[in-house]
Amino acid sequence: MIAKVGLDGHDRGARVIARAFRDAGFEVVYSGLHNAPEEIVQAAVQEDVDVLGISILSGAHNTLVPRVLEGLREHDALDDTLVIVGGVIPEDDEEELLDQGVARVFGPGTPIEETIEFVRENASER
């Protein structure tokens, strides 16, 4: 699942990534815009997703991403879900997010192939 969380409307990256994963043979769900963290958790749990890619460029990641992680944890879904983040995330914040359970943060300019490889290697086997 590719998810946009919060009020951020920058969806170019999310759409390109969703399309690239689909073209690479993945089944992709795109959340659409303007979701509360809890809505993303609900959707991810309902869809039983293997990978949750959160795209955020608004600067609200320190507030919103931990709430998604917390929600997944409450549903015992965090261990089975590979959570990755893409967007404009300063380095200090990246450390913080990794500590809290994000598997990887992909910054601007990351080749799509690198993201796909990472998911292939790290998503749980089904």
């Binding site: 919060g6 009020l7 600067g59 609200a60 320190n62 919103l64």
Partner: peptide
Amino acid sequence: MGLDSDHPMSAGEVGK
């Protein structure tokens, strides 16, 4: 987005 600062969706976004 036409929301007040105390709206739940405003968390983390006020003044950002």
